[in-house]
């Protein structure tokens, strides 16, 4: 288990400063920092807390019913809706979040602190509160809801609402990752590139983008995973209508609470989300070291 924490640094696409890498050669003689033995007890408990529930879920799974459960029209509808809405939400997050990350990273200290706090807010807010807030803004009696209604537009309880809710909760992941990457990369390389005669767009394309690439990818992947798992804000703001707003998490909830439906369907659907999450983490794995700093 301890191997998780001490993976060898992967050199690829490193965004650190120029001097950072030379001194990092891991001496073979370097002894592992010795830990007091008692620390293994809480650490082991932590692992149990993280792993046991998932293990129990898999043990509880009635594998024979899995194929039927995951290929049922309801499940496929939910999965399809989830993938489509999460993809759109992730795209919106990239389009809006990358520029915001640039503004945060290049602002003066106080401005950056305010912007960073604001863009982190949905991360620490309970998603249910986010859902209520979105209703307060776009609901029928909300701040803009009335005006939209006058144009014949109704946002809540539509697929659009699902995308908005997912964007709201997922955007911080992208902004934080990209902003961190930009901050690590600094402006020195860009300044050098400009001095060598490169125009702004060339600097962005050939210097900035490759430097923040790992951070951008990690942010996008996290953003997508968060959008895929979004439940609370979606439930309140978009509702739970099969086909239009019932994403995977809502389908799981519905199956779990559904009268007469066995919990096995919910568990099988959960397995699908776990598979997607593991796939996402595998994609990220190679890039993690570059942005963890």
């Amino acid at each position: 288990m301890t191997d998780l924490a001490r993976r060898e640094p992967v050199g690829r696409g490193n965004v650190a400063g120029p001097a950072g890498d030379v001194a990092r050669a891991p001496g073979p003689a370097a002894r592992r920092a010795s830990l007091p033995p008692w620390i293994l007890v809480p650490a082991g408990l932590a692992v149990a807390v993280l792993v046991l529930p998932l293990a129990a879920l898999l043990l509880r799974l009635d594998w024979a019913s899995v194929p039927a459960a995951v290929t049922s029209p309801a499940a496929l509808d939910a999965l399809g809706l989830s993938l489509v809405t999460a993809t759109i939400a992730t795209a919106v997050c990239v389009v809006l979040g990358v520029p915001l990350a640039f503004v945060v990273a290049r602002s003066s200290r106080p401005v950056a602190a305010v912007l960073r706090t604001l863009s982190t807010l949905p991360l620490v807010l309970p998603p249910l509160v986010g859902g209520i807030a979105l209703l307060a803004l776009l609901g029928r009696t909300g701040l803009f809801g009335g005006a939209l209604e006058a144009f014949g537009l109704r946002v809540p309880f539509t697929t659009t609402a699902v995308v908005i809710a997912q964007t709201f909760v997922a955007l911080p992941f992208l902004v934080i990752s990209v902003e961190g990457a930009l901050r690590t990369a600094g402006t020195g390389f860009e300044s050098v590139a400009a001095g060598l005669g490169a125009r702004r767009f060339t600097v962005f394309r050939r210097i900035t983008l490759p430097l923040i690439g790992p951070g951008l990818l990690a942010g996008t992947v996290l953003c997508f995973a968060r959008a895929l798992g979004e439940f609370g804000a979606t439930a309140l703001f978009a509702g739970n209508a099969a086909g239009t707003t019932r994403t995977m998490p809502l389908a799981i909830y519905t199956a779990f609470n559904g009268a007469g439906v066995s919990e096995d369907t919910a568990i099988a659907l959960s397995l699908m989300l776990i598979v997607v999450a593991v796939a996402v983490l595998l994609v990220m794995r190679g890039w993690r070291e570059d942005t963890a700093r």
């Binding site: 696409g13 490193n14 965004v15 650190a16 400063g17 120029p18 001097a19 020195g188 390389f189 300044s191 050098v192 590139a193 400009a194 001095g195 060598l196 005669g197 490169a198 125009r199 702004r200 210097i207 490759p210 430097l211 690439g213």
Partner: peptide, 20 residues
């Protein structure tokens, strides 16, 4: 004149080679 059009070469303490 914008820095990218000056044709002024500036080299500092740090080489700042593009790492990628």
């Amino acid at each position: 004149v914008a820095p990218e059009q000056r044709r002024v070469g500036l080299l500092g303490q740090q080489p700042l080679l593009f790492p990628h």
